[in-house]
Design a protein around this nucleic acid. Sequence first.
DNA 1: CGCCTTGTTGACACCAGTCAATTCACGTGG
DNA 2: CCACGTGAATTGACTGGTGTCAACAAGGCG
Lengths: 201, 201
Amino acid sequence: MVREGDRPSESTVLITGLAARYNVLKNGKRQITALHVPGDFVDLHGFLVKTMDHAVLAITPCQVGTVPHETLRRISENQPHLARLLAVSVAVDAAIHRQWIVAMGRRSALEHAAHLLCELFVRLQVVGLTTDNSFRLPLTQEELGDTLGLSTVHVNRIVQDLRKEELITWRGETLIIEDWSRLQQLAEFDPTFLSLEAEPR
Amino acid sequence: MVREGDRPSESTVLITGLAARYNVLKNGKRQITALHVPGDFVDLHGFLVKTMDHAVLAITPCQVGTVPHETLRRISENQPHLARLLAVSVAVDAAIHRQWIVAMGRRSALEHAAHLLCELFVRLQVVGLTTDNSFRLPLTQEELGDTLGLSTVHVNRIVQDLRKEELITWRGETLIIEDWSRLQQLAEFDPTFLSLEAEPR
DNA sequence: CGCCTTGTTGACACCAGTCAATTCACGTGG
DNA sequence: CCACGTGAATTGACTGGTGTCAACAAGGCG
């Protein structure tokens, strides 16, 4: 969808599908830095900053909308209310990044994975993409590893642990959270950072 | 400076000193998610999002300026150009967060540390706080560990490696980069993400 | 039916964490 | 001016979590 070094002239809103922002190191290792669900701007960054320091990948086939930067600029000059919403969107992205940093730095692999699943569940719930306690998670274990900063093999072990603890079921692309309460507790997950409370902005 | 859960009514600009944003887990582990140098807004987040999901700590004594959110709101409604600068500031913060994620997930501890030092050097250079190849780094190894997501002991080992390789000298609060080129190469550091190029915004 | 991606397993290596003791650097008070 | 106290840095021994490698199983798809 976007390549590192690009200087896009429009920004992309994800409508359906799952997308990821990532960087690749010289040794070939890849780190996914953000997952985007429908409703997210995947590259507002390019509007504010000009040259992309990362790439964006469609994990599944995606439907997207595009907004020329010119339009964004006009909007943000004439409609401060909407400009503010864009800024909030960037700020929430940043808040999610910080939670990932906390998880990578100070949580075990198991807790980290649990935290990510909690985050995804809540974010998908907000946009109506969960049913009961389940959602579609169309990630391979390799992609999940690149997201968590773990090796594929270890992701596999962790997923099995989560299953063994009867916290989740994950078959094909369907992930079921079997015990939200314990999963949340394990992850020490506090959704505050997603800033979902309805309040005037 | 700010506590988690706060709902500040003003934002803080760092004028002198070093500040950090951090989270603490129930088990007592702390993760620093951002370091702020003079010129940075340390809690624009609180302006956009209302309730702080993290705390802010003054690492050294700091001089700060405060801007009431009310003022920020007025500015961003009447001066789209300035509003945009605020948004860019948030976006650059997010870009830095992403680089930390990459470093935590896919770089070795040594590379990660080298990357952070490169980042700090460049950021401090921009605000004129470097002299030659050195800058003040008033962090304890424990704080550096909480920043990198490493234990204190391991930080010590890593710092010694950097010294042994004659990449840096670090005595007291003064850090000297002895070989920028090799340090940058080790870290695979590309300053693009800091988005320093002068260009119209 | 047979490829090819994905998932799974086991053995082993190694990076980084933990614990505990020791040294060092300073600032303070006598 | 020196003894002491304190936080920071350093060291060593050991543990353990995660990575790596390599093989094999399981599905999905042409």
